[in-house]
Amino acid sequence: MSGSIPTELRYTAEHEWVQVTADGRIRFGITDHAQDALGDIVYVTLPALGATITAGEPCGEVESTKSVSDIYSPLSGTVVARNDAVETSPETINSDPYGAGWLVEIEADVALVDELLTAAAYESTISV
């Protein structure tokens, strides 16, 4: 049903993807599987710039025509960028979840990214 899972990213069991950017920040969003399960996304609530977020805790929400889901912080850190474009055009998360539909960048311990799920491990959590 969903497209392929990018192997260069890391993942959480709560369906977030995580990427270390060129300038050492940690960017995350929700996976293609997650956006497909939600359906048409119509509202997004992101944490404020400068907010401290905690690994495994909700830090925002994505809401579709049919349901609402928390966004879970993949790691603990400080919000240094938010993708404001997805608040005005939330459908971008449906159409490009790993690209233009990214959600938040944080400053956090980059070493912890390696402890998150690999693409293969994530795929095994969503295959039925």
Partner: peptide, 19 residues
């Protein structure tokens, strides 16, 4: 995408509810 409607497995959406 299919879901249960009164005991029947029926379409919830094909391409997206908004479209």
């Amino acid at each position: 995408k299919l879901g249960d409607f009164g005991g029947w497995l029926m379409p919830i959406e094909y391409g997206g509810t908004v479209a």
